[in-house]
Simulated scan of single mutants.
Amino acid sequence: MKTITGLFDTYDDANDAVGELEATGVPRSDISIVANNSTGWHKGETSEAGEDAATGAGVGAVVGGAGGLLTGLGLMAIPGVGPVVAAGWLAATAVGAVGGAVVGGAAGGIIGAMTQSGVPENDAHVYAEGVRRGGTMVTAKVEDNLVPNAEQILKQYNSVDIAGRRKEYEAGGWTGFDPTADVYTGDDLDRAKGRRDI
């Protein structure tokens, strides 16, 4: 079993990759998705935790499993990232689920969850920062015989070159994901996207 991860600039590309991973035999329970929701594009269950998401505090719901991965997207907050839409094992691992209810915040937990599942720490920081800056991350636990297909699927659906993205971030002074960093707003995300499009 190997953990593969892809960062996508758009939720739609990530969503398509998830569908293709499932079609090739990766169980839904082994796939996670975490997408930035600073612009409020996903209107999930509203709660006080959802309202607190902009400050990086509080948790809405972590979902997945029986209800289906993508049909069960839930809102949560990750300090330094802000409001995200998440589903699957990675989100549950990042915040710790107790009897289906989420406790605490994901303060840096996303880095720990990724590294515990085999993602190199250096890369985990880039993935977390990518979500902070408006991206969507897909992580899957994949049987060894499916790894080449799964990696090809992530590339096919426009996953970001992590080494290139790291260089881009570092050129701007970034040194690693900081869970205490200010949350990107919709305007910040637009500016960041505009720089990549140039």
Rank of each mutant, 00 (worst) to 15 (best):
M114R: 04
G176V: 00
L21H: 05
E20M: 08
K2E: 15
T185Q: 02
G58V: 01
E51W: 08
N122T: 15
E170C: 02
G72C: 02
I198Q: 05
D188E: 05
W89V: 11
F8L: 05
K141C: 03
N15C: 09
A140F: 02
G74R: 10
D13K: 15
D182A: 14
T5N: 12
V95A: 12
L70R: 15
T24N: 10
D197S: 08
G6S: 09
E129Y: 02
A106S: 15
P83K: 11
T24D: 07
A54R: 09
T180R: 10
G105E: 15
W41F: 08
R165G: 00
T180V: 06
T136R: 09
V98R: 12
T55A: 15
G176L: 03
E168F: 03
L189T: 01
G108H: 13
G88M: 05
A106L: 15
G50K: 04
A106F: 10
Y157C: 01
A61M: 02
A163H: 04
A113L: 08
N37H: 06
A192G: 05
G96H: 08
E170T: 12
T175W: 03
M1S: 07
A87M: 04
G65P: 02
V26F: 13
Y169K: 09
A35N: 03
D178G: 06
K155Y: 05
G80I: 06
G186C: 00
V160H: 00
I162D: 01
W174D: 03
Y127S: 05
E45M: 12
L70Y: 13
V84P: 03
V147K: 10
I78G: 04
T93D: 14
E48H: 13
V62Y: 06
M114S: 08
E45R: 13
E22S: 09
K43A: 13
G25H: 14
A49V: 00
G112H: 13
E20Y: 04
A53V: 06
G109M: 02
L154N: 06
V103I: 11
S29R: 11
D187T: 10
D123R: 11
V103T: 09
E170L: 01
D52P: 00
K155L: 10
L189F: 02
K155I: 07
G164M: 06
H42P: 00
M137G: 04
I198P: 01
D178H: 07
K155Q: 13
I162K: 01
P27H: 11
D13M: 10
A92V: 03
G96R: 11
V138E: 03
T136Y: 11
D123S: 13
A86H: 00
Y169F: 15
G100I: 07
R132D: 08
T136C: 14
P179G: 00
G108S: 15
S47C: 07
S159C: 10
D187R: 06
G176R: 08
D187N: 10
V98W: 11
D182E: 12
V147F: 05
W41E: 11
F177Y: 14
T5G: 07
V62Q: 06
P120Y: 12
A181V: 04
P148F: 08
D9P: 03
G80N: 07
T93N: 12
A14Q: 05
N15E: 14
L73H: 04
V95S: 12
P83L: 11
A107H: 15
G82K: 08
